[in-house]
Design a binder for these strands. Structure first.
Lengths: 162, 162
DNA sequence: TTGAGGAATTAACCTGGGTTAAAAACCGTG
DNA sequence: CACGGTTTTTAACCCAGGTTAATTCCTCAA
C-alpha cells in the first residue's frame, strides 16, 4: 500500500491491530499529549517495521499515531492472523522471534539513551548513527524525537559550535 | 539458584548470555556511567524475567549490572540453548514469542514515560502502579529509577505534600 | 543504650532546557 | 521577483532538577 506525505497509517486511539513493513519512504510515530504537545517515539526508515504491540497483542487502543513524512510504500500484516499462524508454523514462529528480539534491542537502546544521556549527548549520537535523517526531517521533529523543544535544540547546536 | 543481598548475578561488561526467571526476592538492574553514576534500568519482581538481549542475542558485552536487593531465588536459562531449541520446537517458540511480546510492551511503556512525562508524573505513576516497591527499596534507588537524584525526589515529595 | 554509618531532608546556588515572542532565514508558488 | 508560510534563531525570563554540603533521622550491632 502507498501513502503520501501527511497521510496517516493509524491514529492514537484507533483499535488497529496490524504491523507494517516499510519498503520505502519515511514515517514518524508520535504521542500527542493532552495539551497538544507532540513527542516523537521513532522515525521509521525503509527496512524497519512498526506497529503497536499494545494495540495488537493486548487488545488496547493505540497509544500513538503514525504519519508519513515522505511518500511511503508499506506492507500491512494483520497481527492476529500472523500470531495464530505462528502457533502452528515453526519457521514463521522463528522469524517472529527474530523480529521481536531486534525490536526489543532497539527499545533497550532508546531506553538507555533517555534514562542515562543528556539531550546534547542524544543529539550527538543521532548525528553519529543516523545522519541521513537530517536530510529528510525538520529540526523541529528532530528536537521532539530527542525529547526537547525546537528552541532547546537550536541552543544546543550553537553551544556545540562554540 | 539462590543469591543473597548485594550479590551480583552479572556485571556490566560481562559476556554472559543467560536469561533469568525470578521466583522470589528482588533484583535491580542498573547502568553505571563513566563518572560513577548509577541509573536504574528496572527492578525485577517475582514472576519477572531479566537478561540482556544485547549480550545474549547480538553477542555484545553486557550493558548493565544485575544485583540482589533482597535474597533471591532464580532460574537460569542459557539463551543460546533456548534459542536453538525453539527453532525446532513450535510450542517452545510460541512461548518465547509471548515472552518477547510482554517484554516489548514493558519497554514501550517505559519509553513513553521517559519521553513524555516529567519526573513528578513518573513518580506518581510508580506509586500508583507498584506501591509495594516502596517497602523494599530505598528512596535513593527509586530516584535513580525515575531518572533523577535523591535530592530531586525528596523535593518532589515535599512539593506534592504542599 | 549508645554510637556509627547510611538514608533522607533542607538550604543555597547553578544550569539546562522550557516558554513566549520577535526577528531572521528558508522555502515553494504565483 | 515578490509574497506568504514554515523553519530556525535569538533574546529575556522562568523553573525543575542538579550539585554540594550541612543537618536530621533511622537502624542496627555491640
Amino acid at each position: 500500500m502507498r501513502k503520501e506525505i501527511g497521510e496517516y497509517v493509524f491514529t492514537q486511539g484507533d483499535e488497529v491491530s496490524s504491523l507494517y513493513l516499510v519498503k520505502s519512504g519515511l514515517l514518524k510515530a508520535y504521542y500527542l499529549s493532552d495539551d497538544g504537545k507532540e513527542n516523537i517515539k521513532s522515525f521509521i526508515l525503509p527496512g524497519d517495521n512498526i506497529g503497536s504491540l499494545m494495540a495488537s497483542y493486548a487488545g488496547k487502543t493505540n497509544t500513538f499515531s503514525l504519519v508519513c513524512v515522505k511518500p511511503t510504500e508499506l506492507i500491512q500484516v494483520e497481527f492476529k492472523a500472523l500470531y495464530e499462524a505462528s502457533r502452528a508454523d515453526a519457521e514463521l514462529s522463528s522469524a517472529i522471534v527474530d523480529f521481536l528480539l531486534a525490536f526489543g534491542m532497539k527499545k533497550e537502546i532508546r531506553e538507555y539513551e533517555l534514562l542515562c544521556l543528556s539531550a546534547e549527548e542524544r543529539y550527538r549520537r543521532l548525528i553519529e548513527n543516523t545522519p541521513e535523517l537530517f536530510d529528510h526531517v525538520t529540526q523541529n521533529d528532530i528536537a521532539r524525537y530527542l525529547g526537547i523543544t525546537p528552541v532547546g535544540l537550536s541552543r544546543i547546536k550553537t553551544r556545540i559550535n562554540n
